[in-house]
Design a protein around this nucleic acid. Structure first.
Length: 548
RNA sequence: GCGCCUCUAGCUCAAUGGCAGAGUACCGGACUUUUAAUCCGAGGGAUCUGGGUUCGACCCCCAGGGGGCGCACCA
């Protein structure tokens, strides 16, 4: 890495004399135009990287007849050998393609280049005998990796069987002033991969594939929900009270109102208000924000799917989400088995249903149906040496959660349903009719990752108010991850809410599992990072960011 | 926040405490079927920063910065 200031001293490539007579003169920009015979276009060049404006006027559009993948398929299907196609001289162009030059192999009187666009790659060729030799020379010497070009040409198959577009005209669309990533190794430095994601996408096909899968997966989920009568809605990200999850929020400030707001940690209570308004099935795919630590399975802003269905309970959601996950995996990967860190996760097999308190008892010997208050649970946890330093944990729910995460969750590898969490864990969930100390709730846990959380919703305004007041008491006692009271939400519930069940699915984690990505940062285009060191800071030279 | 690892040419990586190198990219040249083309030649370095030890530091020590992993926190 180097600072901007020094770059121009290193790079001689642009100090070369311009290749065309008019290319170097600002008042006479070398617009790429057809040469006299109308067959090939010349190569405009920059001759000085300090010149901010390119000294040619690249065309603003280039009509293509198809993507590289499309033209490649046509060529594969109908292409004939070059001797045959060009037996009576070079044939007229049949296709027009455009893309970034990834490889440029010059071999004297002919050259082969590889273009890349959003659909893939395709080889193009230039023959000196099929164009003005001077223009051929300019193209052969002037095009560099990273440049964008448009090629009009004819299809043929090379002797080695490679479908190729033989160029009759080449148009330089825009040039690259910076070098491309190593053409074999790509970008390896993770810092560069995250900060300059465009280079990662260009040079690392597996990264590109991951984001393709992400997009397809989200599109599939929308389609799946739309087909089942769900309506996509949007609810506020700026909220007066952060609610719907146990997490610390980011706060921000509205100037005109002179009032602080929180970035939402969950859309839950707003989506329930929408259901109260008569839209029986709604969903939202959007960003949630949580002010927490950074690791491979947590992001500060993450994408969550939440849906709510009136007249469903949590068992309806168990069936629905399993169907969705299996269908989505099949759609984007063609399989119901994914590899995670060398472990094959089989979503196609039955998902066992694991009772939360039973699992905790089997893992620790602590029976949560007997140990029901904070101090007793603390003592049990300390006695067994499961965790120390519990002094600042003030709520029973938080302790239970900690216990589970330490002892049970890591052992849940294959997809499973974890059900009937203790009632203290979620103040918005409905209690079980037979055992009010647990919730009608489940999570889907895979590889120790919670990818789904869902429950039958509490729609009784009286009980809801009581349980949120308990959260407020816990907050006053020092638990900073409780939910806040929302009078407006309670009021909506007092107007009446149908029985319903909601579900949340962590899109980032699902994508990471589907693509075998070891960290969530690999499935987010621009993950939050520390501030890049500034190029203007005295003494700095490493990792200088590209500010332009 | 704590611990461990890491940072060398644009990129990917070498270099017992003794003249900082290769591949690739870029620049010049050769080449009529290449596939990371090949071959010949040239240029390119505050070895992340600052301090220290030493006759001598990419290398050892201290401090700082970026990144990764683990722990903690959390979905």
């Amino acid at each position: 890495m180097q600072g901007r200031v020094r770059r121009h001293h290193r790079w001689g490539r642009w100090r070369r004399a311009p290749l065309t007579p008019t290319a170097g003169h600002p008042s006479q920009p070398a617009t790429p135009t057809s040469s006299a015979d109308g067959r090939v276009r010349s190569v405009p060049d920059h001759n000085d990287a300090d010149q901010a404006t390119p000294r040619f006027s690249p065309p603003g559009r280039f009509p293509i007849s198809g993507t590289l993948a499309e033209v490649l398929a046509l060529t594969e299907a109908g292409g004939r050998p070059h001797e045959e196609v060009a037996a009576d001289g070079p044939p007229p162009p049949t296709d027009a393609v455009a893309g970034r030059v990834m490889l440029w192999r010059h071999m004297g009187k002919r050259l082969f280049g590889t273009l890349q666009d959003g659909s893939g790659r395709m080889q193009v060729s230039l023959f000196r005998d099929e164009m003005d030799p001077e223009v051929y020379r300019e193209l052969a010497k002037g095009i560099r990796m990273g440049d964008f070009i448009g090629v009009e040409g004819y299809r043929y198959i090379t002797g080695k069987g490679e479908p190729t577009l033989g160029a009759r005209e080449v148009t330089v669309l825009q040039r690259s002033l910076e070098p491309m990533p190593d053409k074999w190794a790509g970008v390896v430095d993770t810092d560069v991969r995250y900060r300059k994601r465009y280079l990662d996408l260009l040079g690392n096909p597996e990264s590109r594939q991951r984001f393709l899968v992400r997009s397809r997966l989200i599109a599939f989920i929308r389609r799946w929900l739309d087909e089942r009568g769900f309506l996509e809605v949007e609810t506020p990200m700026l909220q007066a009270a952060a609610s719907g999850a146990a997490a610390r929020p980011f706060s921000t400030h509205h100037n005109a109102l002179d009032r602080d707001f929180y970035l939402r940690i969950s859309p839950e209570t707003y989506l329930k208000r929408v259901v109260a308004g008569g839209f029986d099935r709604v969903y939202e795919i959007g960003r949630n924000f949580r002010n927490e630590g950074i690791d491979t399975s947590h992001l500060q802003e993450f994408t969550m799917l939440e849906w709510y269905a009136a007249y469903w309970d949590y068992t309806d959601n168990m069936m629905a989400v399993r169907d969705l996950i299996v269908a989505a995996l099949t759609e984007v990967t063609g399989s119901t088995t994914v590899d995670h860190d060398g472990v094959a996760l089989d979503f196609g097999a039955p998902w066992p249903v694991i009772d939360y308190r039973t699992a905790v008892r089997e893992a620790t010997g602590i029976d949560l149906s007997v140990v029901v208050d904070v101090d007793a649970l603390k003592a049990e946890i300390a006695d067994r040496g499961i965790a120390d330093d519990l002094g600042d944990t003030v709520s029973y729910g938080a302790l239970v959660d900690l216990l589970y995460k330490r002892t049970v969750r890591p052992s849940l590898v294959q997809p499973c349903f974890l059900v009937h969490h203790p009632a203290e864990l979620v103040p918005l969930a409905r209690r079980n009719d037979d055992d009010p100390s647990v919730l009608d709730m489940f999570q889907v846990v895979v590889a120790g990752w919670e990818i789904v959380k869902a429950y039958s919703e509490l729609v009784d305004p009286i009980e809801q108010e009581e349980r949120l007041l308990e959260q407020v008491r816990l907050r006053e006692a020092g638990d900073d991850e409780t939910m806040m009271m929302e009078d407006d939400f309670i009021e909506a519930m007092r107007h009446g809410m149908p029985p319903m069940s909601g579900l949340g699915l962590g899109i980032d984690r699902f994508v990471a599992l589907a693509t075998g990505a070891p960290t969530l940062r690999d499935v987010v285009l621009f993950p939050l990072l520390r501030e890049a060191p500034s190029a203007t800071d005295a003494g700095d030279a490493a990792g200088a960011p590209e500010v332009d």
